[in-house]
Protein backbone atom coordinates (compact mmCIF):
# COMPACT_ATOMS: atom_id res chain seq x y z
CA UNK A 1 0.00 0.00 0.00
CA UNK A 2 1.56 3.25 -1.18
CA UNK A 3 0.37 6.71 -0.14
CA UNK A 4 -0.13 9.65 -2.47
CA UNK A 5 -1.21 13.28 -2.18
CA UNK A 6 -2.77 14.24 -5.50
CA UNK A 7 -4.11 17.55 -6.81
CA UNK A 8 -7.23 17.75 -8.99
CA UNK A 9 -7.93 17.74 -11.87
CA UNK A 10 -6.19 14.36 -12.19
CA UNK A 11 -3.14 14.33 -14.45
CA UNK A 12 -2.55 11.32 -16.68
CA UNK A 13 0.72 10.64 -14.84
CA UNK A 14 -1.14 10.55 -11.50
CA UNK A 15 -3.75 8.15 -12.85
CA UNK A 16 -1.02 5.85 -14.11
CA UNK A 17 0.93 6.04 -10.85
CA UNK A 18 -1.78 4.76 -8.50
CA UNK A 19 -2.72 1.11 -8.07
CA UNK A 20 -5.62 -0.75 -6.50
CA UNK A 21 -5.19 -0.68 -2.72
CA UNK A 22 -3.20 2.57 -2.60
CA UNK A 23 -4.18 5.28 -0.14
CA UNK A 24 -4.67 8.72 -1.70
CA UNK A 25 -5.42 12.20 -0.35
CA UNK A 26 -7.20 14.34 -2.95
CA UNK A 27 -7.16 18.15 -3.10
CA UNK A 28 -9.08 20.23 -5.65
CA UNK A 29 -12.46 20.39 -7.39
CA UNK A 30 -14.98 17.53 -7.40
CA UNK A 31 -18.65 17.47 -8.41
CA UNK A 32 -21.34 15.70 -6.40
CA UNK A 33 -23.83 13.64 -8.37
CA UNK A 34 -25.82 10.54 -7.44
CA UNK A 35 -28.80 8.58 -8.78
CA UNK A 36 -31.23 11.30 -9.86
CA UNK A 37 -28.49 13.63 -11.18
CA UNK A 38 -26.98 10.79 -13.24
CA UNK A 39 -30.37 10.05 -14.73
CA UNK A 40 -30.86 13.71 -15.67
CA UNK A 41 -27.36 14.06 -17.10
CA UNK A 42 -27.90 10.96 -19.21
CA UNK A 43 -31.23 12.30 -20.47
CA UNK A 44 -29.52 15.62 -21.29
CA UNK A 45 -26.91 13.77 -23.37
CA UNK A 46 -29.60 11.80 -25.20
CA UNK A 47 -31.31 15.06 -26.13
CA UNK A 48 -28.01 16.57 -27.25
CA UNK A 49 -28.04 19.10 -24.39
CA UNK A 50 -25.04 20.28 -22.39
CA UNK A 51 -24.10 18.76 -19.04
CA UNK A 52 -24.14 21.07 -15.98
CA UNK A 53 -20.33 20.98 -15.79
CA UNK A 54 -17.45 20.07 -18.09
CA UNK A 55 -17.21 16.33 -17.68
CA UNK A 56 -13.88 16.13 -19.52
CA UNK A 57 -11.14 15.65 -16.91
CA UNK A 58 -13.56 15.88 -13.98
CA UNK A 59 -14.01 13.85 -10.79
CA UNK A 60 -17.49 12.91 -9.53
CA UNK A 61 -18.17 12.23 -5.86
CA UNK A 62 -21.23 9.97 -5.42
CA UNK A 63 -22.69 12.03 -2.60
CA UNK A 64 -25.96 13.34 -1.24
CA UNK A 65 -24.98 15.33 1.86
CA UNK A 66 -27.12 16.16 4.86
CA UNK A 67 -27.98 19.88 5.15
CA UNK A 68 -25.34 22.26 6.55
CA UNK A 69 -26.02 23.88 9.89
CA UNK A 70 -25.53 27.68 9.94
CA UNK A 71 -21.80 28.33 9.67
CA UNK A 72 -20.98 24.92 8.19
CA UNK A 73 -19.83 24.39 4.58
CA UNK A 74 -21.79 21.15 4.27
CA UNK A 75 -23.45 18.56 6.50
CA UNK A 76 -22.43 14.92 6.77
CA UNK A 77 -20.79 13.99 3.48
CA UNK A 78 -19.78 10.36 2.98
CA UNK A 79 -20.01 8.26 -0.21
CA UNK A 80 -23.06 6.41 -1.47
CA UNK A 81 -23.02 2.97 -3.16
CA UNK A 82 -21.41 3.34 -6.59
CA UNK A 83 -23.03 0.37 -8.33
CA UNK A 84 -26.31 2.26 -8.68
CA UNK A 85 -24.51 4.62 -11.07
CA UNK A 86 -23.03 1.76 -13.15
CA UNK A 87 -25.73 1.99 -15.81
CA UNK A 88 -24.80 5.61 -16.57
CA UNK A 89 -21.05 5.53 -15.97
CA UNK A 90 -19.41 4.06 -19.13
CA UNK A 91 -20.90 6.83 -21.29
CA UNK A 92 -19.54 9.49 -18.91
CA UNK A 93 -16.10 7.85 -18.88
CA UNK A 94 -16.09 7.85 -22.67
CA UNK A 95 -16.76 11.61 -22.51
CA UNK A 96 -13.67 12.14 -20.37
CA UNK A 97 -14.73 11.58 -16.75
CA UNK A 98 -11.44 10.74 -15.03
CA UNK A 99 -12.27 9.92 -11.44
CA UNK A 100 -15.12 8.63 -9.30
CA UNK A 101 -15.39 8.56 -5.52
CA UNK A 102 -17.93 6.21 -3.99
CA UNK A 103 -18.06 2.88 -2.21
CA UNK A 104 -18.54 -0.76 -3.13
CA UNK A 105 -18.36 -2.87 -6.26
CA UNK A 106 -18.56 -1.78 -9.91
CA UNK A 107 -19.85 -3.70 -12.93
CA UNK A 108 -17.51 -5.31 -15.47
CA UNK A 109 -18.68 -2.70 -18.02
CA UNK A 110 -17.50 0.10 -15.73
CA UNK A 111 -14.20 -1.64 -14.99
CA UNK A 112 -13.59 -2.09 -18.74
CA UNK A 113 -14.37 1.59 -19.38
CA UNK A 114 -12.01 2.66 -16.56
CA UNK A 115 -9.20 0.81 -18.33
CA UNK A 116 -10.19 1.90 -21.83
CA UNK A 117 -10.55 5.57 -20.91
CA UNK A 118 -7.67 5.63 -18.42
CA UNK A 119 -9.57 6.68 -15.31
CA UNK A 120 -9.64 5.65 -11.65
CA UNK A 121 -12.29 4.61 -9.14
CA UNK A 122 -11.73 5.53 -5.49
CA UNK A 123 -13.62 4.54 -2.36
CA UNK A 124 -14.08 6.86 0.58
CA UNK A 125 -14.98 5.33 3.93
CA UNK A 126 -18.72 4.65 4.03
CA UNK A 127 -20.37 5.80 7.21
CA UNK A 128 -17.70 8.37 8.03
CA UNK A 129 -19.70 11.35 6.78
CA UNK A 130 -18.96 13.66 9.69
CA UNK A 131 -15.21 13.11 9.33
CA UNK A 132 -15.25 13.47 5.53
CA UNK A 133 -17.29 16.70 5.73
CA UNK A 134 -14.24 18.29 7.35
CA UNK A 135 -12.30 17.84 4.07
CA UNK A 136 -14.84 19.84 2.04
CA UNK A 137 -13.90 23.50 2.25
CA UNK A 138 -16.32 24.93 -0.33
CA UNK A 139 -19.62 23.72 -1.73
CA UNK A 140 -22.08 25.31 -4.12
CA UNK A 141 -25.15 23.87 -5.84
CA UNK A 142 -24.66 24.41 -9.58
CA UNK A 143 -27.54 22.40 -11.08
CA UNK A 144 -30.77 20.47 -10.44
CA UNK A 145 -31.48 22.34 -7.21
CA UNK A 146 -35.01 20.87 -7.14
CA UNK A 147 -33.48 17.46 -6.41
CA UNK A 148 -32.58 18.59 -2.89
CA UNK A 149 -29.75 16.45 -1.55
CA UNK A 150 -29.34 14.93 -5.03
CA UNK A 151 -28.51 18.28 -6.69
CA UNK A 152 -25.15 18.71 -8.45
CA UNK A 153 -22.60 20.58 -6.32
CA UNK A 154 -19.22 22.00 -7.21
CA UNK A 155 -17.01 21.34 -4.22
CA UNK A 156 -13.43 22.06 -3.18
CA UNK A 157 -11.89 19.24 -1.18
CA UNK A 158 -8.68 19.32 0.83
CA UNK A 159 -6.77 16.12 1.60
CA UNK A 160 -9.89 13.96 1.16
CA UNK A 161 -8.82 10.42 2.18
CA UNK A 162 -9.71 7.75 -0.40
CA UNK A 163 -8.49 4.31 -1.42
CA UNK A 164 -7.96 3.19 -5.02
CA UNK A 165 -10.43 0.38 -5.78
CA UNK A 166 -10.06 0.09 -9.55
CA UNK A 167 -7.00 1.45 -11.35
CA UNK A 168 -6.40 2.14 -15.05
CA UNK A 169 -4.20 -0.96 -15.36
CA UNK A 170 -7.14 -3.34 -14.94
CA UNK A 171 -6.63 -4.13 -11.26
CA UNK A 172 -9.40 -4.02 -8.68
CA UNK A 173 -9.54 -4.58 -4.92
CA UNK A 174 -12.93 -6.25 -5.27
Amino acid sequence: MAEFHIGLPLKESDIEAVHAGDYVYLTGTVYSARDAAHKRMTEALEKGEKLPFDINGSVIYYLGPSPARPGQVIGSAGPTTSSRMDKYTPALLDLGLKGMIGKGRRSEEVKDAIKRDKAVYFAAVGGAGALLSKCIIKSEVIAYEDLGTEAVRKMEVKELPVIVVTDCHGNSVY
Partner: peptide, 23 residues
Protein backbone atom coordinates in the same frame (compact mmCIF):
# COMPACT_ATOMS: atom_id res chain seq x y z
CA UNK B 1 -10.58 2.76 8.49
CA UNK B 2 -11.72 1.71 11.98
CA UNK B 3 -9.68 4.59 13.42
CA UNK B 4 -11.58 6.92 11.07
CA UNK B 5 -14.89 5.47 12.24
CA UNK B 6 -13.96 6.17 15.87
CA UNK B 7 -12.94 9.72 14.98
CA UNK B 8 -16.13 10.11 12.96
CA UNK B 9 -18.29 9.17 15.97
CA UNK B 10 -16.52 11.79 18.09
CA UNK B 11 -16.95 14.56 15.50
CA UNK B 12 -20.61 13.62 15.05
CA UNK B 13 -21.32 13.80 18.77
CA UNK B 14 -19.31 16.92 19.52
CA UNK B 15 -20.29 18.99 16.49
CA UNK B 16 -23.83 17.71 15.88
CA UNK B 17 -22.99 16.47 12.37
CA UNK B 18 -24.87 13.24 11.49
CA UNK B 19 -22.67 10.12 11.78
CA UNK B 20 -23.64 9.25 8.20
CA UNK B 21 -25.11 11.52 5.53
CA UNK B 22 -27.75 8.85 4.89
CA UNK B 23 -29.84 9.72 7.91
Amino acid sequence: ILGQLVENMEIAKNEAIPICQDT
